[in-house]
Design a protein around this nucleic acid. Structure first.
Lengths: 231, 231
DNA sequence: TTTCTGTATTCTGCATACAGTAGTTCGGGG
DNA sequence: CCCCGAACTACTGTATGCAGAATACAGAAA
């Protein structure tokens, strides 16, 4: 007495038909707040007044609070009981800690990616890099920056370990703002670009050891770049 | 006209005096739900009915929902829009991914801990281990299990990198339940204990390379132990 | 009997209302 | 003039109410 179309049939949409996915309000608010923190519209140390922020987003406090709880779990805000949420401020030590973990994660991902990432995925990353280089030439810092982050994320995703990628993404989000304001100085920028060139070369050659080495160097340098941006 | 006691004085409590920390309701609910998931009272795949669970905890839906959002961010539940939250079910692949990341994190922490952890902290871990061995002898599985997790966490904390520790803790929470039901078989258990002996020896000797090696082996074995517990 | 469709019920998502607490201001006393 | 205290204000924490979506159910048609 089995059915031809099992209960899970709804999960198999007709091919070529995109699934409709509505976004819940707290999710939209979450993304919006994250962006606002990263872009500095909500600077570190600022208290998030629920009434005020909610009104400016045109949302009641309920979904806003739910989003804030998620941000707290992600480490982007701190919740002080009975006092509300404040945008978290990262000390130089915090940043060093985060970069140290990112380094470990990216290096582990690098080995995996060199070993088992499909050729197409590596090609796609190389393509991202090429586009990023164009942006470097044209001096479009914002777009460059975003693509830069995307490349790091893509490398980690190429490991095939989604948990690794998600963990990396979450930590990267914490310091995104810092890096955003960071790469100011031209000479620093040039150095970072050179390291990226090496990274892609190693990845395309599937040279895990070399990629690990370059990534390590790149992230150590990132700490330096961030340091004199913060000070 | 500066004050002798600056505004931040409230953040410097008298030493030896524990700060009073009231727990907000959503925080209490969060901890409770986490425990319920880990202990299997909320088994994987179960839908969390807000009205029902809220009533049984004696809490309204608002703090409950906030707690659920945090659990989702931690990866313990999944939120299906307009359908509610379900306790996340981890496939064997998911577990392998998580253990792979835990391995990387613990190994990185191991090197740091061997290099710069204070002697007292290492001694404290060794002490934990000794107590765990007693529990092993007496066959108290539950207490053994908890102390086991605590040791792994303590080693990571000994790295001095709080971000690393927090990241590790969060991932560990995801598979805590699996490991909880996992270590059934006596021969497996004995193997795990032997590995722990080695780990502590390496840590006390501050032999980073050896600790990394043992930890790697231990977590690979953990995958095996979990595998035949799940199947 | 089986399948499809219309309806009822249940539950989530969001908004609002209420209660309690921290911060602030103003008045009085030393 | 400074310090202390009490009332006030503003905001967070929690509960409840309401609208809409998803599921379950029942009836009709093939």
């Amino acid at each position: 007495m089995h059915k031809a179309a099992p209960a899970g049939a709804a999960e198999q949409p007709m091919e070529g038909v995109a699934r409709i996915t509505r976004m819940t309000l707290h999710e939209a608010v979450l993304n919006q707040l994250r962006d606002m923190i990263i872009e500095g519209k909500l600077p570190p140390g600022m208290r998030i007044n629920e009434g005020q922020v909610g009104a400016s987003l045109g949302v009641s406090r309920t979904p806003l609070r739910e989003a804030i709880k998620t941000l707290a779990s992600e480490g982007l805000v701190e919740i002080l009981p009975a006092k509300g949420a404040v945008v978290r401020r990262f000390s130089e030590g915090d940043i060093a800690e985060i970069l140290a973990v990112l380094k470990v994660l990216e290096q582990a991902a690098a080995r995996l990616a060199c070993g088992r990432a499909p050729e197409a995925e590596i090609a796609a990353i190389a393509d991202l890099h090429a586009r990023m280089m164009q942006l470097y030439e044209s001096g479009d810092r914002l777009a460059y920056f975003k693509l830069n982050q995307a490349i790091h994320s893509a490398i980690v995703r190429a490991s095939g370990n989604a948990t690794l990628a998600q963990t990396h993404e979450q930590l990267q989000a914490r310091i995104r703002r810092i890096r955003f304001v960071g790469n100011e100085k031209p000479e620093r920028w040039a150095g970072a670009v050179a390291e990226h060139e090496e990274m892609i070369a190693a990845l395309v050659a599937r040279d895990g050891d070399r990629l690990v080495e370059v990534l390590g160097r790149h992230l150590d340098q990132t700490m330096e770049r961030v340091r004199d941006a913060v000070l």
